[in-house]
Design a binder for these strands. Structure first.
Lengths: 108, 108
DNA sequence: TCACTATGTGATGGCATACTCACGCATCGG
DNA sequence: CCGATGCGTGAGTATGCCATCACATAGTGA
């Protein structure tokens, strides 16, 4: 593996890691309904506001989100709808995994 | 969000996090060619052997991989082919992101 | 039995992340 | 101008992750 390939893996890994957290995952899913402000996201998650703000910053930096100002509020949106397809892959993988586990358990 | 939903997000996030690392990503891609032993993976990556071993353990625990013993060697395989579809989504998202960045840069 | 190979794992140091609290800044309504 | 609201961010702490070294284990072949 040359340096260029390593760099590419790093980019991909960073993108993935930006979603590898329960709160961030929940935010992405919530944003699939369209643009939302921080206050609504916070209320929906039932999490600490400053913490949500930090997670939003992480995803913003990773390029997953976009935002715009609307008066007092900051409105966040998903940057690439592709991300949702990504998430459906995860759900499917999780389902397959659990079914596989269930089969193993059934043999006990 | 109730506790059950949070648990679900945690499961998904753990699955995602298990891939959110350059080395682990490279391993998954390498394993898409089929079963490989630790020695070959290590050589292909050019990484520290014990480090590779640890990353394999992480993915094993996350349910991404399976392994079997073959003499001295431990052979690892991808558990769910679905993971590859997942990765192609990441690649596509990264491409979209970079194209988007390129458009923004073009306006300078 | 003895060297050698392939692999996993405990210990450790360094670094990044997550969360909370407190505060500051910008904006809006009056 | 003032209070209230929405939001970001510095500081501090706790926790976890990562890479590395050293060592232990298991199988292999002579």
């Amino acid at each position: 593996m040359n340096a260029e390939q390593k760099q590419l893996y790093k980019l991909k890994a960073d993108l993935i890691a930006a979603m590898g957290h329960p709160i961030r995952l929940a935010i992405v899913e919530y944003l699939s309904n369209g643009e939302q402000c921080v206050c609504d996201i916070t209320e929906h998650l039932g999490a600490e506001r400053s913490n949500v703000s930090r997670h939003l910053a992480v995803m913003l930096k990773a390029g997953l989100l976009e935002y715009r100002k609307d008066g007092l509020k900051m409105m966040y949106t998903l940057r690439t709808p592709c991300i949702l397809k990504f998430l459906s892959c995860v759900t499917e993988a999780l389902r397959q995994q659990m079914q596989s586990n269930a089969r193993i358990l059934a043999r006990l």
